[in-house]
Amino acid sequence: MLRRTGYAVVVFLVVAFATNVFAQGTSAKVDYPKKPINTLIGFAPGGGSDVMISMVRPHLEKALKTTFVPVYKPGSGSDIALMELSTSKPDGYTVVISCTPQVPINAYVREAGYKISDFAFVANVVTDPGIFVVRAESPYKTIADVIKAAKEKPGTLSVGVSSAPGDDWFAMHMFEGAAQIKLNIVPFSGDGPSWQAALAGHVDATSNNLSIVYAQLRAGKLRALAIMTDQRSPIIPDVPTFKEMGYNFASGSSRGFSMPKNTPKAIIDIFAGAVKQVMNTEEFKAIALKTAFPSDYQGPEEYTAYIKKLDTIYRPLWDKYGKSPDAAAK
């Protein structure tokens, strides 16, 4: 009995090892990637990061001939995942979904446990523009109505945002500055609760992201008053931009891939190249258009510069509105 158990153990372990060795043997001849890539996700499943990785994952796995293992490290506005990445081996087998404005602003507003210089920014995938939305029954038909109401009773018109500091939160402060108004900015615990509160009439409006509210816009349950892009979005061409109405700000949330600093440039280029190739296929473009997935590919250099630029935009805004919760309320 005992001996038999012993043999069973040996056989079992041999099989376990062997299946792994063979699994590796089948990978392509190029140096990278030759094993599964761990993908750190800093938010709970179901958020924007999750949608982004789900959209590109099947295609990217085919292009890179590997698998992506999602590793959820939710919490602290993705800081936990970012911290994990900053201490990971720079071998290309650990990537993080980096989201703006959490990257770069978190590292500025609190002790985040990492520095922005710990990362190599590989490729941006999507930039989800900010959008100002009210419910279908709302009396506000245009941004002018909103501004008029806000001027009559300063600080009472309530606008839901996903969190503070989040892209929607910054956007509404920029709007307040541009239109010389005072809103009641209500931070929720995510963009979902924020638009749901607007839909149900618990708040007057929500500052949100296009892909998130798109289904409700299409069904006529929510109404978009303005979008925070430079040019009108091809997904909803009827909605005017804040810029064309004279309020000079744009906002959105970008999500892309980043690796630890010192990752070899060859690996970064292979990865970024695959992302670019995947996003250029007709199949991907068709799905992206249908689900209002606002593709925005940026290669390593462009993406790094973009993060730097955001850092210089958001820092003064945080200094102005975010230093203490009381300051934000005024």
């Binding site: 158990t5 012993g6 069973a8 079992f12 372990l13 376990a16 299946t19």
Partner: peptide, 26 residues
């Protein structure tokens, strides 16, 4: 000792295959 070691090895092996290989617990 010896049977205990054997049992431990079997259980550890099974849990390795099921959790790490199948369920992909990192």
């Amino acid at each position: 000792w010896v049977p205990a070691l054997a049992m431990a090895a079997v259980i550890a092996g099974i849990s390795y295959v099921s959790f790490v290989l199948w369920l992909k617990v990192p």
